[in-house]
Design a protein around this nucleic acid. Structure first.
Lengths: 215, 215
DNA sequence: TAGATTGTTAATCGATTAACAATC
DNA sequence: TAGATTGTTAATCGATTAACAATC
């Protein structure tokens, strides 16, 4: 039987729950009610209960939710209980920044390769991983198990490399290039369009100005 | 009279329209119908027309939309027709990566300062802007016009600096720290939670696996 | 047991899609 | 004018919130 599809909106909220539960754990909070959590997170208690119940009953009537248990369970749902080998394509500023993100490794996202076109970078180690040439990518993918590919290349190159990734069986792409990749539906693409995020901020700022300073 | 509020969902789609229109311009396409654009963007034509009509009638019956005109108008809506001086707090990998984003400057986002805690970085120039100490921030904000602050600091420091930014009249914060800033409602905060984005990808990947490989 | 709080159903709200009259 | 396509109203769909019975 097909489990009923969980909405994208719910899934995007999960990591935030996970973060708050992690913080509660650090503060040695043992249990929390949907109501108390709702106040901390500025969402409705109803939404919290609805969201969590998509995945099963994690709470207990009259008690609330056990923080550590819920944290662990959400972690499992997010796939943080297994190791995800990943590679970075593009060893520019952003690629290197991501390579140096300590948090990722802690959550099971293990960097196993970095690639670039620039021969000057070849062999330079970032976090103990030597930068390789993009031309070596197909062979690398055949010889190593890679789950996630991070794309921080300029858009033309990104499109080209996405094809190679997909042809070589990669099923998850974290895309930072300013394009929409056309991937088959068995390949997951998560986009981070930074300039679009900044434009949204700019919109809100301009809008606010118009309303408050006359226009 | 108060203009009716435009939904957040619509606003988040605007930069994507802007991007596609920019591409069409590069291809010298003069006009496009909502139907043709819908096929390119994989959204419904109805949504495109609805979205655009929130801001006024940009099209013409029987003709469609003039690409250049629509591009310019959306640019104005997004506030890209004016210069937004911005500063970066945190000159680590991510901060430097953002400082080097050429696209931002092209769109009017002008970097005017970079700050860090690390004295070793003091005076080093990134894109022609010398890194200053965070302790100089309050004075800098008083003497310079700054619209947008980019926060790429570790979370504890980020919270502290957000307060200083807000106290000094900054109205827009682009937050890359793994926290939710509590800002008054006249301060716009746009969050980029990279690890949460990666977790979403991880969820989708795990989910796909479960469905297709048995579990 | 009484009180608290979940899990879940029902009601509401908002966003998306469909349809079509207006009009270029 | 006839054809195309918008702008906009109405219908549908989905997501959020409210309510409350179940139960710890």
């Amino acid at each position: 039987m097909e489990a009923k599809e969980i909405s994208k909106a719910v899934i995007k909220r999960l990591p935030r729950y996970y973060r708050y539960l992690g913080e509660l754990m650090e503060e040695n909070v043992e249990r929390i009610s949907s109501n108390d959590l709702s106040k901390k997170m500025h969402v409705t208690a109803s939404q919290i209960r609805q969201d969590l119940n998509n995945f099963g009953g994690f709470g207990q009537q009259g008690y609330g939710y056990n923080v550590r248990y819920l944290y662990t369970e959400i972690g499992k749902i997010l796939g943080l209980d297994t190791v995800h080998p990943m590679i970075i394509l593009g060893a520019g500023n952003l690629g290197q920044a991501l390579a140096n993100y300590v948090d990722f490794e802690k959550r099971g996202f293990k960097l196993v390769g970095i690639f670039d076109v620039n021969p000057v970078l070849e062999g330079i180690a970032v976090r103990g991983i030597e930068i390789q040439m993009l031309s070596d990518l197909p062979l690398f993918l055949k010889e190593n198990e890679v789950e996630i590919a991070i794309l921080t290349l300029p858009k033309i190159k990104a499109k080209e490399m996405a094809k190679i990734l997909i042809d070589n069986g990669i099923k998850a792409i974290w895309n930072f290039a300013h394009i929409d990749l056309d991937a088959p539906e068995d390949v997951m693409v998560e986009n981070v369009h930074l300039s679009e995020s900044l434009m949204t901020l700019s919109y809100n700022l301009s809008e606010y100005r118009k309303e408050h300073e006359g226009m």
